[in-house]
Design a protein around this nucleic acid. Sequence first.
DNA 1: AGATACTTGCTTGCCACAAGCATCGGTTCC
DNA 2: GGAACCGATGCTTGTGGCAAGCAAGTATCT
Lengths: 164, 164
Amino acid sequence: MDDDTEYAAIGRQVGRFIRLSERLFATLKWSDAGRGLERPAYMLLSRIAVDGPFRLSALATDVALDLSTVSRQVGALETAGLVRRATDPTDRRASLVEVTDVGRDVFEENRARWIATWQELLAGWTPEERQIFAALFTQLNQSLAERLPGAERQPGTTSERDAR
Amino acid sequence: MDDDTEYAAIGRQVGRFIRLSERLFATLKWSDAGRGLERPAYMLLSRIAVDGPFRLSALATDVALDLSTVSRQVGALETAGLVRRATDPTDRRASLVEVTDVGRDVFEENRARWIATWQELLAGWTPEERQIFAALFTQLNQSLAERLPGAERQPGTTSERDAR
DNA sequence: AGATACTTGCTTGCCACAAGCATCGGTTCC
DNA sequence: GGAACCGATGCTTGTGGCAAGCAAGTATCT
């Protein structure tokens, strides 16, 4: 009974959070050095910059986006010169996407800004709170990823989550 | 610094979470009894059902959506019969939106489903973890809301939904 | 041949911005 | 006192745009 309200509280906060963080994303100034890039492109850029060359398909499963979307976004990143494609020598159907020097700069700048945003947002928190929150959040994402349909993670080939 | 990575970790989880929860929303079956409602309509419905009659403008600030969007979604809800509008007697420009009986049923059903989802997702968590997480999450949303532009919330009494 | 890695065309959901309409509240003018 | 006016407010509607998925196509691998 009252247990309900506990879950309900979380559910409610989640709903609110999604909305708010969407707006947060939207209002952030992304350093794109004048290139007209979309928000999700930066998500991909950061994945690429952090975890080395990716195949498009690997990226797609990693961020839980349709391959077609990834294809377009990577295309945009490539046009903007933040990312470079090389055909996979072992399979010429596939491309390996990797970050360029410019791309890395842009990434670093955005990363710094993003981190600063969170430092600001979590200013009043104790280190323990931050730590616990991060841990629980990670755990939640884990469950979420497992629960989602189409999240057939085959261990081995895909080096998705866990990052650095 | 290592401090960076802590904030970075949270930031990263946030990004991931947004994506995942979008998919979670998308895969959820909303009880709409055959009415073709969009996802955000249910968000509004739940706000209306829980916190009584709302003015559209109050709803908009509450959920951090543009008034035009709210207007359309409420229109859809009204057409679907889940919600009813009455002109505010004290100000005939304004409408008070309130939930209908059917709307309440739909809301309850969705709420139950939503709660069940979270029970499932947080199955492995201890009560303490859930509680802490809920609290921190709430706090985070608070900071987020304050930080967002156009959120000129006064800390005192933030009940922007008096109206009635 | 059949699977795989991607690309491209199309549709849909969702959002914001801007212009417009009705109403309100206060001021001015008679 | 009341009519006329004026800017502010509550909402609606028109429009445009991004991002996501699906489906069909192309090239390549096995």
